[in-house]
Nucleic acid binder design. Structure first.
Length: 265
DNA sequence: CCCGATGTTCGATT
DNA sequence: AAATCGAACATCGG
């Protein structure tokens, strides 16, 4: 579910986590830690103080005294701060006790979870370039597209290339740039437009606190309003805002893809 | 009731 | 090497 704008929204909502200390960790789902066994994870995380909360791609990076507590929300994860444990704990998979309050992790589908990395280099192996990093330049994108021949939809979804884009925003960006999602990346002409539109779409969505279709929430059940700004995603059968043609939906790169056949070439 | 679909990622198989 | 598929899991709608 959450892509870069939603994860950024969650990171912003966790600002108060800075300088708090993790007193204890409790989990209710055995696969919640991806890269360590539970006792090793707890040894590394408990009694550490939070230095900063940032994001790379779709990962939430919580820098501790030593090492990084990393969270990925996958499809339905929700991470938020609360003074008390919620009444409804049906989907609560874990929580961190922060002495005065809690950081709670809910996840309907149980795909998401946590990592601990002792160094950021170890984490960085998992992802490519984030659109908000200085490495993300027009020239970098042009070289990346020219040197590959996959469909642009597939390439933009590849987290080891650009990290942070997912199914909603790739469809939105390609619609805005008038690029057909199956176009091979090395044949694309409007790379400058594509580069600018990646940042434009992400900026706009972050301003609206991301997109809530069904499950995305931040800061304990607040929802994102970018849903109202979507131009193609979830608009199958409706009219294209640009050319009035019907928006179609087709599986591309194994993902449900929305586009306008008439004005995306 | 059963089938398909859901915003993600990983690993196995073509 | 790159594309495709299923699996991880819960829920909802047709």
């Amino acid at each position: 579910m959450p892509e870069l704008p939603e994860v950024q929204t969650v990171v912003n909502s966790l600002a108060k986590l800075k300088n708090k200390r993790i007193i204890s960790f409790k989990s209710f789902h055995s696969k919640i830690i991806y890269n360590l066994d539970h006792s090793t994870f707890i040894e590394n995380v408990v009694n550490k103080k939070v230095d900063s909360v940032k994001r790379k791609g779709k990962y939430i990076l919580i820098k501790l005294d030593t090492g990084y507590l990393v969270c990925h929300l996958r499809m339905t994860g929700q991470l938020f701060l609360s003074d008390k444990l919620p009444e409804n704990r049906r989907h609560m998979r874990a929580y961190f006790n922060l002495s005065k309050d809690f950081m709670i992790y809910n996840d309907i589908r149980k795909f998401g979870g946590f990592y601990y990395f002792s160094s950021i280099d170890e984490f960085n192996l998992k992802v490519g370039v984030d659109p908000y990093e200085k490495e993300f330049t027009f020239k970098w994108l042009r070289n990346g597209l020219k040197s590959r021949s996959r469909s642009i939809k597939h390439l933009l979804l590849d987290q080891k290339f650009i990290c942070g884009l997912g199914n909603i925003y790739v469809d939105e960006i390609l619609w805005l740039t008038k690029i057909h999602p199956e176009k091979k990346s090395n044949k694309i002409k409007m790379i400058k437009n594509l580069y600018e539109n990646i940042l434009t779409v992400l900026d706009n969505s972050i301003k609206h606190h991301g997109t809530t279709i069904i499950n995305f929430t931040f800061d304990n059940m607040k929802t994102g309003e970018f849903k109202n700004e979507l131009k193609v995603y979830a608009r199958e059968g409706m009219r294209c805002f640009r050319c009035n043609n019907k928006i179609i939906r087709k599986k591309i790169a194994s993902r449900s893809t929305h586009y306008c056949r008439k004005c995306q070439k």
